[in-house]
Design a binder for these strands. Structure first.
Length: 448
RNA sequence: GCCGCUAUCGUCUAGGGGACUAGGACGCCGCCCUCUCACGGCGGAAACCCGGGUUCGAAUCCCGGUAGCGGUACCA
């Protein structure tokens, strides 16, 4: 089995493209086959070396490796020219200068459902001669037989007047030469498959097995794009998602696994993946479910690994303790800093939080009491801090939250943080007292 | 226009003629846990596009309609 994947080399690896890549990978790995990468690089504007490298980088981040390639179409022009000549000489193809207008006029005369058939000319673009009778049948693993009447198919242009080959021709030749047995790609290619089939037929060769994946949409049912937030693998990565979670979530979008289990490693996915089980209907990419999954993956990493990745993501070091007390409160790597950054860089600015807690009734008194208790807390550990602060709760009879929130705001600047005892203990006595004093000064009228 | 694909809770899905009072997950709502935010636990609301057939019996098979999507380039 030789599986071929051809990402569109536009720089960003679209999430739909990532799923296609993943399914190709799962198919090849699950069956012990070979995964071949093909790059369509004829569009110099989009397929720059930098863009191609970005795609490869995104694939590597997803842990999707390949066995052969990338094979670039542009490196094969010699071969394409050769096959073109063969088709021309066997009259499976012909030169034609017919334009789009000519095609339209032809349909006007023969009916909308009649495909264009051109006249053989001395020069012009090269068109493939499509039989007038019969049908081209795509044996699709996912959809079953899909029949396209040949009569309604235009003779497709397979090479420009300058001899350069077009996609539907080049890809067929490349797949043939590479001995590709399985082509798994997006459904947007389904209607073009008959053209590729016809090339194989004209060459007297057997086409590969095709499987067309349903497309991926955004929450509004439209094609997934930047408007929907993250639309590419690179954007997911920047948003703090883990490759494990992205692989797992994306695989679920149409893989047709039993629904009682949802968490799988790449190897488990490869083991279970069945091409003929893949869903036929398009799926909507739901980032909320990805977030949920990501949170679980994050916590399964363990503190050491989570720390490593968080430090890599934030570009900071010395995060272990902060990560430890934040782990169960974040869903993405990007959630970490807003929640726990105050532990390293000081309180954040959130005037509303200050007003509601410290500046509010009794806030200053509570902070003074907390300062006193923490000044004497011994030892200054999580347990020691808890005992000290709970002592205030008991003495005053106030609700725990009423006592803890002012302290939280004093040390973090805002109302959401890791556990208060853990945070206070981690900061250390000196730093906590300093921050409380600063908050008291700001509340005004304090003499410390 | 023409050719083609698709159609189960808001979303991802299970289901492949009786096991369906249609199951799970995310999200949502309520309760519990609780120092905030979360995590976790328990419970709840929530779907077979419409119409015909076939059959003793249809979410499941067939046909039609409708809707969505894709293709229809000297793009990929």
């Amino acid at each position: 089995m030789r599986v071929r994947f051809a990402p569109s080399p536009t720089g960003a690896l679209h999430i739909g493209g990532a799923r296609t890549a993943l399914y190709n990978w799962l198919l090849a790995r699950g069956q012990g086959g070979t995964l071949v990468l093909r790059i369509e690089d004829t569009d110099r504007e989009r397929s720059t070396p930098e863009n191609v490298e970005q795609i490869l980088d995104a694939l590597r981040w997803l842990k999707l490796d390949w066995d052969e390639g990338p094979v670039f179409q542009s490196q094969r022009s010699e071969r394409h020219r050769e096959v073109l000549e063969q088709l021309l000489s066997t009259e499976h193809a012909y030169h034609s200068s017919a334009t789009a207008e000519d095609v339209k006029a032809y349909k006007q005369r023969h009916g909308d459902d009649r495909g264009f058939r051109g006249e053989r000319e001395a020069q012009g673009a090269v068109r493939l001669r499509v039989p007038d009778e019969g049908e081209s049948i795509v044996e699709d693993v996912i959809r079953g037989q899909t029949r396209f009447p040949n009569a309604s198919l235009d003779d497709p242009v397979i090479a420009r007047a300058d001899g350069s080959p077009l996609y539907n021709f080049a890809v067929a030749v490349d797949d043939l030469d590479a001995g590709i047995t399985h082509v798994v790609r997006g459904e947007d290619h389904l209607s073009n498959t008959p053209k590729q089939l016809l090339v194989f037929e004209a060459l007297g060769q057997t086409p590969p097995v095709y499987a067309h994946l349903p497309l991926l949409y955004g929450p509004d049912g439209k094609k997934l794009s930047k408007r929907h937030g993250a639309a590419s693998v690179q954007e997911l990565r920047d948003a703090g998602y883990l490759p494990e979670a992205v692989d797992n979530y994306v695989a679920l979008l149409g893989a047709g696994f039993a629904a009682d289990e949802e968490y799988f490693t790449l190897d488990e996915l490869a083991e279970r993946f069945r091409l003929d089980r893949v869903s036929k209907n398009p799926a909507v990419f739901d980032e909320r479910k990805l977030r949920h999954m990501n949170g679980r993956y994050l916590r399964e990493l363990g503190i050491d690994e989570l720390t490593r990745r968080t430090e890599e993501f934030t570009g900071r070091t010395g995060l272990r303790s902060a990560v430890e007390i934040s782990a169960e409160k974040i869903q993405t790597l990007a959630d970490f800093w807003p929640l726990a950054g105050f532990l390293l860089d000081g309180p954040v600015e959130d005037p509303a939080a200050f007003e509601r807690t410290i500046a509010a009734d009794g806030g200053v008194e509570i902070l003074r009491a907390a300062r006193e208790a923490l000044n004497e807390a011994e030892p200054f550990t999580e347990a020691g801090v808890e005992a000290a602060l709970r002592g205030i709760v008991e003495r005053t009879g106030l609700k725990p939250g009423k006592v803890f929130q002012p302290v939280r705001v004093a040390i973090s600047g805002t109302t959401a943080s890791p556990g208060i005892f853990e945070s206070v203990a981690l900061l250390g006595r000196d730093e906590v007292l300093t921050r409380i004093d600063r908050a008291l000064r700001r509340a005004g009228g304090d003499h410390h």
